[in-house]
Nucleic acid binder design. Structure first.
Lengths: 251, 251
DNA sequence: CTCACTTTGTGCTCACGTTCACAAGCGCTT
DNA sequence: AAGCGCTTGTGAACGTGAGCACAAAGTGAG
């Protein structure tokens, strides 16, 4: 499940307004979230020299049900050939185009602690249509140093940096305490998509989309299921439950 | 939405087997995913000295609808007081207990590149019932060095490390190429919950739960929405779409 | 050309999740 | 002790997503 909760601009109203030739408009959110997974699997296949793939094979590589994969792809259009499968390279192009990865998106990372540092050095971005164009931090110890070939700029210049590079997508990797402030300034500066690594709930205007990545939350979800496996017979589990015990029977 | 797709041990069958006094068994996945968010908001309130909170206030702090919050909390039991609200500290305890955070979970991090390094140094774990007990890597340059107060051990010792500390939850922060191998060994060693940062689809037995954190995927989802905002009037958007143009009208 | 076989694209059903709206319950005031 | 206002807990309606199962459409053999 999903990882995070976006906030704005839900599409999907006219999701069913299809049926004609065009596939445009209204790809379900759940599908959009899976397209990058398909794209990665397709990239691997392409690198291996595979030119055609069936929904069954691709689904296995992406870790999903094949019917779901076919339905997902059908939202983009009819790019398969019955009796054959999908052309890998053609599908890579179509999915990339749908996701908006045929162009390069300039990105700024705000906050260069351990995590921001790791993100700046992560190669997985550049390969997929994202170009980290600027690094921003408030700590005088960090400002001016060079990370991943970029000079870290001071937070004061945030708005200027956004404007200069035409940045629409930003990554927040600051401490939680300043995340909302940074977020507000990003939005004021014109950023409309934010990837938030800070453990804080960001409040943004409707036209801004926020996605959250929070390892602490993911671990807690794992802990919940782990606890369930061990069983409801643990010590602490037999005790209090119902402060109000009435209203049980007799309506 | 989410973020990711777990794989196993879905609860929720007997979700509706309630109605009696007890609230046990069958908390919806969507609810479980939000409990950590509530817990964080509650922690902040508690630190601020707030002793009672209404569903409306807490929902605002957590960034969700108040009806949803009430329904979520109702799965744990009736811990609120009508006309008043919820006792903050009591609720913190109940949510923590439900998530299994009243005990400490020993965790191993495998892979100590930039990201693993950042994770090892992240303070947010310890404060929430998780204790990083071991760091494991295969690179001889890294093995033996000390990170966050722990000595990095060699991958060869993985099974031993798991056994010694009784580890059930592991974090994979290796390159994608070796993620599945590491995963298999973790599972063979007895780990049953995995948090995967590697951009790879992991295949695991049914009793193992995997959650995935992938910043590249999140960025691509943002790019999709960003592209939509700019409008379907961009250059590349007027072109190819329908290889097959027939079947348009007349059913 | 026809038939057998393969794989896509999708209608339909069911399950899950979200939201509304309100009755039930609690505390405070009079 | 009775009434009033506030807030929880939840029944019910609605919307979204998953997956089955099959018709449609393509390929290749005979």
């Amino acid at each position: 499940m999903t990882t995070s909760g976006p906030s704005s601009t839900r599409g999907s109203r006219a999701a069913r307004a299809r049926g004609n030739g065009h596939a445009r408009q209204g790809i379900p959110d759940a599908t959009v979230a899976r397209l990058p997974v398909y794209l990665r699997a397709l990239g691997t296949l392409s690198d291996e020299g595979v030119s055609t793939v069936s929904s069954e094979e691709l689904a296995a590589a992406a870790g999903v049900n094949s019917a779901k994969l076919r339905k997902d792809l059908s939202y983009l259009g009819s790019y398969g050939t019955r009796g054959v499968g999908y052309d890998v390279d053609y599908l890579v192009y179509q999915v990339s185009r749908e996701l908006g990865l045929t162009q390069d998106w300039p990105v700024v990372i705000v906050g260069l602690g351990h995590l921001g540092h790791a993100l700046a050095n992560y190669g997985g971005f550049a390969s997929r249509g994202f170009a980290i164009r600027a690094l921003v931090d408030a700590d005088p110890e960090i400002v001016g140093t060079e990370i991943a070939g970029l000079q870290v700029e001071h937070l004061d210049r945030l708005e200027r940096v956004i404007g200069t590079h035409g940045i629409a997508i930003a990554v927040i990797a600051t401490p939680a305490t300043v995340a909302q402030d940074v977020c507000d300034r990003l939005v004021a500066g014109g950023v409309s998509s934010i990837l938030n690594f800070a453990p804080a709930v960001l409040v943004v205007p409707d036209h801004v989309e926020v996605r959250k990545v929070d390892m602490s939350i993911e671990l807690q979800i794992l802990a919940f299921h782990e606890q369930r496996k061990i069983g409801p017979r643990s010590l602490t589990d037999q005790l209090p439950d119902l402060p109000a015990l009435a209203e049980v029977v007799i309506p």
